[in-house]
Amino acid sequence: MKFDLNKLVWPALRQVSSGDVAGLGKASFSKRTASLKSRLSDADRVVPSVCPYCGVGCGQEVYVKDEKIMDIEGDYASPISRGCLCPKGSATMQLVTGTHRHQKVLYRRPYGTKWEEIPLQDAMDMVAVRVKKARDATWEDQTGKGHPLRRTLGIAHLGGATLDNEENYLIKKLFTSLGMVQIENQARI
């Protein structure tokens, strides 16, 4: 007796009639499971990338649809991570597209109780003025014996783990040129 596998509703009958007793083949599929597809199959393209969180350099694949990121996964072709990502790397999608992230500069005035939005250029100017003022106020040109120092201990920098190696390199060069010696990164702590 021959059965049409598509007409059999009960999976056990499909398994027995097709010889797939273990249910590892098409006999175990329902109409719904046969129609399922990967959530990433609709991507227009996959862009190779590197995780931005630390210096390990785990490979990532960025899935793009309609010029928007739809997902970020580990890259199995990466000899470093072989498709694996740590919890921070797995959350890269939230770093890029998180709705909880502020997209504007917020400023709270001294003794203020509320945050207010200010233009980015105003914020950059405020930071530049304050860095210059702190640097000038704490500048040490030489020791008491006349040995050159050319440094400031009044400013320090602690970088975040979301910075990549190139950004950390540039930050180190910038802050060293300002005379800062206390420069560290959270990824190493």
Score class of each variant (00 low, 15 high):
residue 67 E to A: 10
residue 58 C to W: 03
residue 67 E to N: 12
residue 11 P to Y: 13
residue 9 V to I: 15
residue 39 R to W: 15
residue 83 G to C: 05
residue 106 L to D: 01
residue 145 K to F: 13
residue 132 K to F: 04
residue 129 V to Q: 14
residue 115 W to D: 07
residue 141 D to G: 12
residue 115 W to N: 04
residue 43 A to Y: 03
residue 52 P to L: 02
residue 70 M to N: 01
residue 88 K to Y: 08
residue 147 H to N: 04
residue 79 P to M: 07
residue 19 G to T: 11
residue 107 Y to D: 00
residue 97 T to W: 10
residue 18 S to C: 13
residue 10 W to P: 01
residue 89 G to E: 03
residue 94 Q to M: 13
residue 147 H to K: 09
residue 98 G to Q: 05
residue 54 C to F: 02
residue 18 S to P: 10
residue 83 G to V: 01
residue 52 P to D: 02
residue 64 V to M: 12
residue 51 C to Q: 01
residue 86 C to D: 09
residue 59 G to E: 02
residue 119 P to N: 06
residue 45 R to L: 02
residue 4 D to M: 14
residue 43 A to P: 02
residue 32 R to G: 04
residue 126 M to E: 04
residue 127 V to C: 03
residue 12 A to D: 14
residue 105 V to M: 06
residue 81 S to H: 05
residue 149 L to Y: 11
residue 141 D to A: 13
residue 24 L to N: 10
residue 14 R to G: 00
residue 56 V to Q: 04
residue 60 Q to H: 02
residue 140 E to K: 13
residue 146 G to M: 00
residue 126 M to L: 09
residue 91 A to M: 06
residue 131 V to K: 01
residue 120 L to D: 06
residue 125 D to S: 12
residue 78 S to C: 11
residue 121 Q to R: 09
residue 9 V to P: 08
residue 10 W to G: 06
residue 93 M to K: 15
residue 121 Q to H: 05
residue 4 D to P: 12
residue 36 L to P: 04
residue 69 I to T: 09
residue 64 V to R: 05
residue 89 G to N: 06
residue 78 S to K: 01
